[in-house]
Nucleic acid binder design. Structure first.
Length: 556
RNA sequence: UGGGGCGUCGUCAAAUGGCAAGACACAGGGUUUUGGUCCCUGCAUUUGGAGGUUCGAAUCCUCCCGCCCCAGCCA
């Protein structure tokens, strides 16, 4: 068995088990319900749930809902659905808000220990007193209130006696600490807002640093895995647990995922949605899990991608090509093949009987023998891809041209005899003859053809809408632009092209949204929920690799 | 320029003092009724730089350089 090298987090866990520090491992995935999950969260989900699986431990799903201003129940449901879709089951479900009472008690305990105080400084003054990174801060004038006064004030804060912004509860640590978050950090702020779960019960809400370590501790989380930007907060995380003398979870930080040609911050994704630059959080161009799902990306592909990218502390940007590779790799193995013509032009076989229809055996998936074959109908009038014909083709063009013989996949060898055009010079019809001896696609005399074209029978196909998606941004780093702010200037104007006259084999009529297939030679497609009985809609998940396109591009 | 992190191929990423894995990308070739898949081949004499320790250094030491994070009553 080839031992895959372990990442630094799994090495820490191994060491903790070896040393006897832990015999059972518990992790957690702690999203804030203020937006939709994206591929970056998938890295965290796969890490936390993956570790729990590998070590026979537990992984909780916990909503970090400490800020009612930004959070909503809508996101809670969407997040649960996304985690399940990715293929994970949480050991237990929690909400930070379930711990509000306990947090409050622990806050009073800290006050009682002389380690927390109510501060009346305005937000502006608080900032002024904090100092700078290189300059120490000054003590708040309210820092030395008596325990009794602090307790009284804090209870009155809780009882709603003070307006928002007038007072906070702060930990009494060290205003001169070189670590900014240790300069008497806020524990509670006043917010006269209804919370999506606790309603109007509370008008003070705990800050992240105070809340998160308590949540982890309450759940006996052994390893609290988070992203790099929380690294400077770790001393504070440890401070609360130590002073309160409660279960000590260990915070470990890893580098969040960045991906080329993609934005992955909730803030920027929200901008795209709110400015109407995409059609919602689940727009198939979005890197959200809901968007990827709608686009047709299998959860398996995402999980495999997450194991390919590794886990480390170095800031990095993964090439989106690696993600695309993961998608193709999965889809190639599972997607049934279908023939569909995106940009149809009629092909008439002059020597084929007008009233005849015959069927050929179509291999459903050459990568999966068990998928078997199915019959596909063929007749005198077909559609082929406009791109598959050139009147004056170069040598390397292996497709149809005047006088050229090509294979119609699974059917016959045909030779182009004529082209019919309208008054504008647009080709309206291509004429050809077929060789009846080549049934199935091979010539008994052994002659070979270079090209094999896909096709549909005109009488046995129907038009659908195809939404051809491409990368949302045309710049490797969408954040890199002239004014340094407006990343939307790097949006790819061709990220969505719609064609409404894509002809698809008749048997596809019965398929329903979510169905994924490969349109042969074109790419992988999934049926969109926008489909109606009048018009089916297909999303292009991703194209096939296209070495012909590459060859053409390199010549230019 | 205070504190906390991080520098190994174009992009990710292993190597834990003993001869720089692997994947993607790229380039070339083979097979092929998808210009797909698959298969072969090539792709870091060198690990941000300079010194030092050592028989031996990406790994240890010193100095330097670069990048990221922290000054929300956000998370």
């Amino acid at each position: 068995m080839d031992e895959k090298a372990k990442d630094f987090i799994r090495e820490i866990i191994d060491a903790d088990i070896a040393s006897g520090k832990h015999s059972d491992i518990t992790t957690r995935f702690p999203p804030e319900p203020n937006g939709y999950l994206h591929i970056g969260h998938a890295k965290s989900i796969c890490t936390n749930f993956g570790i729990a699986q590998e070590y026979n431990g537990k992984c909780n799903l916990r909503f970090d809902d400490t800020n009612p201003v930004k959070e909503d129940i809508e996101y809670v449901d969407a997040i649960k659905h996304d985690v399940e879709w990715l293929g994970f089951k949480w050991s237990s479900l929690h909400f930070a808000s379930d711990y509000f009472e306990r947090m409050y008690i622990l806050a009073e305990k800290l006050i009682g220990m002389g380690l927390a105080y109510v501060c009346d400084l305005s937000p502006e003054d608080t900032r002024a007193y904090r100092g700078f990174a290189s300059k120490p801060g000054k003590n708040s004038p309210f820092r030395d209130r008596s325990i009794e006064e602090n307790l009284d004030l804090f209870r009155r804060m809780k009882n709603g006696e003070f307006p928002e912004g007038t007072r906070t509860l702060r930990a009494k640590i060290d205003m001169t600490s070189p670590t900014m978050c240790l300069r008497d950090p806020h524990m509670y702020r006043i917010l006269h807002r209804d919370h999506h779960r606790t309603g109007s019960t509370w008008c003070i809400y705990p800050m992240y640093d105070f809340a998160h370590c308590l949540e982890d501790s309450s759940e006996n989380i052994t390893h609290s895995i988070c992203t790099l930007e929380f690294e400077p907060n770790r001393p504070l995380y440890n401070w609360y647990l130590e002073k309160l003398d409660i279960y000590r979870s260990r915070q470990i930080e890893f580098a969040r995922l960045n991906m080329s040609y993609t934005v992955l911050s909730k803030r920027n994704l929200r901008t795209l949605v709110e400015k109407g630059l995409v059609n919602g959080w689940d727009d198939p161009r979005m890197p959200t899990l809901s968007g990827l799902r709608r686009r047709g990306v299998p959860a398996d592909a995402i999980r495999n991608f997450c194991s390919l990218i590794g886990l480390a502390k170095r800031n990095s940007t993964v090439d989106v090509a690696l993600f695309e590779h993961s998608i193709r790799e999965k889809l190639n193995k599972v997607a049934p093949r279908v023939m569909s013509v995106m940009n149809p032009v009629k092909l008439v076989i002059e020597n084929y009987p007008e009233d005849k229809t015959e069927h050929f055996d179509y291999v459903v998936n050459p990568e999966d023998e068990s998928a078997g074959t199915r019959p596909t109908p063929f007749s005198r009038e077909l559609y082929i891809e406009r791109d598959d014909f050139m009147e004056d083709p170069p040598k390397k063009f292996f497709r149809m041209g005047p006088g050229r013989e090509v294979r119609l996949r699974y059917a016959y060898l045909v030779t182009c005899t004529a082209v019919v055009k309208d008054e504008d010079g647009l080709i309206t019809e291509i004429r050809c003859t077929y060789d009846p001896d080549t049934r199935g696609g091979n010539a008994p005399d052994g002659r070979r053809v270079k090209g094999t074209l896909h096709w549909v029978s005109a009488a046995h196909s129907f038009p659908v809408e195809a939404r051809l998606y491409d990368r949302l941004f045309n710049k490797e780093n969408p954040m890199d632009n002239e004014d340094g702010i407006d990343f939307t200037s790097n949006l790819n104007p061709d990220s969505l092209l719609v064609t409404t006259n894509c002809m698809v084999e008749d048997h596809m009529r019965s398929k329903t949204p979510g169905f994924i297939c490969q349109f042969e030679r074109k790419g992988y497609f999934s049926i969109d929920p926008d489909s109606t009985s009048e018009k089916m809609v297909f999303n292009r998940t991703i194209t096939l690799r296209d070495s012909w396109k590459k060859l053409k591009k390199n010549k230019k």
